Simulated assay, not measured.
Amino acid sequence: MKPKFFTILLTTIVVMATSQANALTFQKTGKITRILSDSSKFGGCMVQLDVSIGNTCPTTPWVSLDCKAVTTPAGDGNRHYASALLAASLNKQVTIYIDNTKKINAYCVGTRIDTIF
């Protein structure tokens, strides 16, 4: 009886840990160390955080903000980019909400950015 209980408990823990490790949307908090603007790649703009992104995204600290509206509604990426510029200029931390189902040139797309004051 007890071995069956522990097997079920262990299975439940593994399933929960796996589902959270590869969540479709997740968030990362850190400071922006670089801002990229490009005319043809990465959705037009990206930010680099001082923490690794991980999940199923590349292990680099880069996140696309999709200024060209490749995977997000028009205007969203430009607003995120403006928020990133503000946070970087004030040397403030941000929390970026990342959707790992939306990728541009293999980089995950940020769908929200909060500046922490």
Rank of each mutant, 00 (worst) to 15 (best):
Gly54Ser: 08
Asn55Gln: 11
Lys28Pro: 02
Thr111Gln: 08
Ala17Phe: 13
Ala69Cys: 03
Ser89Ile: 02
Gln93Val: 02
Phe117Lys: 05
Ile32Asp: 00
Asp50Ile: 11
Thr11Trp: 05
Asp66Gly: 06
Lys68Leu: 03
Met16Arg: 03
Asp99Asn: 09
Asn55Val: 07
Asn105Val: 07
Ile35Lys: 11
Phe5Pro: 00
Ser89Cys: 02
Gln93Gly: 05
Phe117Trp: 03
Ile13Asn: 02
Arg112Ser: 05
Thr18Trp: 14
Asp99Phe: 01
Ile104Tyr: 09
Ser83Ile: 11
Asp66Ile: 05
Leu86Phe: 01
Lys92Gln: 15
Val109Pro: 00
Ala87Val: 03
Ile116Gln: 14
Met46Val: 11
Arg112Phe: 13
Val14Lys: 10
Leu86Ser: 02
Ile98Asn: 01
Cys108Glu: 08
Trp62Tyr: 15
Thr18His: 10
Lys41Ser: 07
Ala106Cys: 06
Met46Leu: 10
Thr95Trp: 11
Leu9Glu: 04
Ala87Tyr: 00
Asn100Trp: 03
Ile8Ala: 14
Val94Asn: 04
Lys4Ala: 14
Asn78Pro: 01
Thr56Leu: 11
Ala17Pro: 06
Gln48Asn: 05
Leu90Arg: 15
Gly75Phe: 12
Gly44Val: 12
Lys4Val: 15
Asn105Ile: 02
Leu36Ser: 06
Ala21Asp: 11
Ala74Ser: 14
Gly44Tyr: 11
Thr101Asp: 10
Gly77Met: 05
Thr11His: 03
Ser37Ala: 14
Met16Asn: 06
Lys68Cys: 01
Lys68Trp: 05
Ala74Val: 12
Ile53Leu: 05
Ile96Asp: 00
